[in-house]
Design a protein around this nucleic acid. Sequence first.
DNA 1: GTCTATACTATGATAGAC
DNA 2: GTCTATCATAGTATAGAC
Lengths: 197, 197
Amino acid sequence: MAVQGDRRTAILRCSADLFARQGVASTTVRQIADEVGVLSGSLYHHFPSKDAIVNEVVTAYLDLLLSRYREVMAVDRTPRERLEQLIAASLRVAESEPSATVVYQNEMSYIRELPQYEAVKAAAAEVQQTWLSVIEDGRADGSFRDDIDPRVFYRFVRDAVWLSVRWYRPEGPYTVERLAADCASIFLDGYAAFDPE
Amino acid sequence: MAVQGDRRTAILRCSADLFARQGVASTTVRQIADEVGVLSGSLYHHFPSKDAIVNEVVTAYLDLLLSRYREVMAVDRTPRERLEQLIAASLRVAESEPSATVVYQNEMSYIRELPQYEAVKAAAAEVQQTWLSVIEDGRADGSFRDDIDPRVFYRFVRDAVWLSVRWYRPEGPYTVERLAADCASIFLDGYAAFDPE
DNA sequence: GTCTATACTATGATAGAC
DNA sequence: GTCTATCATAGTATAGAC
């Protein structure tokens, strides 16, 4: 049964890579089959449709992300520390699942049309709620500014964090932990030089 | 000749809207023709191919953006002011050309395969060089931090700015100028509360 | 400048042999 | 569980009448 699962997993992995590189709509079932090393008809033994593959790539990704967010929220920390941890957790997930991250970021219009979209929507809502609750907590205790809408701040952070999959390469000396620290520092302390007074 | 240009323009506008909503690959020439109000064969009187439409949407967009950036850089200002102006100019372009902005942000993998990609690449390089020169100037004169790579800062700002087309709606009371001010304030001063000492 | 009609290709998916 | 063969559909693009 390890073997049985492997082929399924290979299909998901190859699909995610192709979806991320070319877009879901431009990726054909024949390309996926080629990459896996089977013929296109064989895919339909494992999945009922191409859309089912897309759906599983996205839901597996959101499940992983949410489990990491829940770990962060399970520990008692300040809002600032939690925000730093959410950024770091997100970047680590993006590092370990770059293709699925790209698919989720780029293919929302496709995902929205999937029959199983409601489950995705619920997970996405929990993701957003996690960030917003941390930001609201920081506003409430005075550690974050109260002159800018938390939702605006959330969206800027979210987009900057997730779009890093388009350019960040974990191979170099610039580690994901350093990237996370820089990101948190810019968003919390700003890029202007600190006033030396 | 006003009429002649109008149909061409209508094709470009409708195409950009559909490309932004559904993605380029998922948009068919028949859909475009429907939206314009002609039959699909008629499109080929104005454009040699669907890809030619995509190309013109993107290049017209980059031309507009670069002309705004050049206006900003033509005036003598501090790096901080210039950064604020680049953010504001970008958000104004995103407001006036939301569909083209979305297409350019979402469809890079498609655009890269176009035969005329080199021109797009050159324009994109000038965009990036504009931002980077302003950031480097700010580092040089001590108004920006020197402990974070300018390219990292640039990418965070760029992605946060451009992805705002996915969520910002100019109809409400939250104006694009206010959005630009909030964005610049977060990225330069940070979201942490100012220390009251 | 637009329409009609159609050529050609590629697509997602299926049925049945192995 | 995979392959062969194929269906039905939909795609871009073209030729020529109007």
